[in-house]
Nucleic acid binder design. Sequence first.
DNA 1: GGTTACATGTAACTAGTTACATGATTAG
DNA 2: CTAATCATGTAACTAGTTACATGTAACC
Lengths: 206, 206
Amino acid sequence: MIELAILGLLKEQDLHGYELRKRLGELPGVRATVVSFGSLYPALNRLERAGCVKTVEAKTLTGRPAPSSGSLAGELAAFRVRHNLPRPAGRSKKVYGLTPVGESHLVELLTDPQPSDDRTFALKVAFFRHLDPRDRLALLERRRAEIQRRVDETEHRAAGRDRVLDRYVRSLTERDAASLSQDLAWLDGLIASERQAAAPPQENPS
Amino acid sequence: MIELAILGLLKEQDLHGYELRKRLGELPGVRATVVSFGSLYPALNRLERAGCVKTVEAKTLTGRPAPSSGSLAGELAAFRVRHNLPRPAGRSKKVYGLTPVGESHLVELLTDPQPSDDRTFALKVAFFRHLDPRDRLALLERRRAEIQRRVDETEHRAAGRDRVLDRYVRSLTERDAASLSQDLAWLDGLIASERQAAAPPQENPS
DNA sequence: GGTTACATGTAACTAGTTACATGATTAG
DNA sequence: CTAATCATGTAACTAGTTACATGTAACC
């Protein structure tokens, strides 16, 4: 999960750990995607040892490091520089970038055929632009089959039901079914638009 | 999570580990609630040491143990007994039951005010019948506030958005919002019916 | 000059998983 | 007699968490 998140975010832009975490928190993934620093920093070190990421620069905080993250830090630092204020060799900010190994690992993670959990799936979709339409379609269809399997399972259970269900369990079951069918509809929408994109140079072949 | 599941299921009926797992898998909890034996059995032993559950009987498989779980095992075992077939001291099936300590621990877990994750929340609702309407209402309202907080957060992010969003991230965000508002509506339904149940002896107090 | 936000990291812990080991019972 | 299912358990691993430790920079 966390490695996919890191690689996917770095693919777009070089970032340091702290900023990475902030971006991750902004990604919409079925209910909250933030991770703790206690898992983020070790993951970055792991990925560096594995050759997937490398330190691009280890600037002090005054070096205009993170490209406009919406915070004002960069602007204020620039002001400081223009006025020749002291830059007291601050603690370094480690900015990471994706290596070629990291790029191919990202694609591996994104195209890995085994079913992802909800969070990982949401992350994969968030990084869809790094995949070609064929792979996007494959992932969406695997997901659709998985969700459909859950629906069938629930229906099968409902059919073989002998005893009366508790009112609250019934309510949960209905909510589950509603959420599942909403998800199915969402997937169908994405699949349809992917199909359109995957087969665009089709003239009418009559 | 797993301890709540065990206590909640045992509250209704004495069960052994294997059957417990099957029942757990039948509970509707936001996407799949099955647990592995590798976490179930140690959890049962933990709960036994803590005095929350105790072994009710350690029958061999032929003793008509689990009360009609939908399987045919019981019937066939009974047939065996009627015909005086050998009962070769089989490996024991440990049937667990809830102790008073376990009952009060279950209530503690169910009324614990700190926000539950999705799975745990679903489990709590599944065991709602063991709670009085006041506690049910409290849990539902805390949950509603939590979901509303997520909605607000998303909207706040959308408002302060300066750069254009990726098409797929946008789609994820919309799906998230749809799922959140569906959940909110579901909660409102439950809350309304709980309110009605909590204040029934109200004559028109004009 | 103190509080808040930025920034990186480690150690201990949590809550589960998979893979393995073992054996009984049922069904064909 | 053999395969599938029932049944209980352990050991090693996974993927995260919280709490702690440390220090810088910005804000008022």
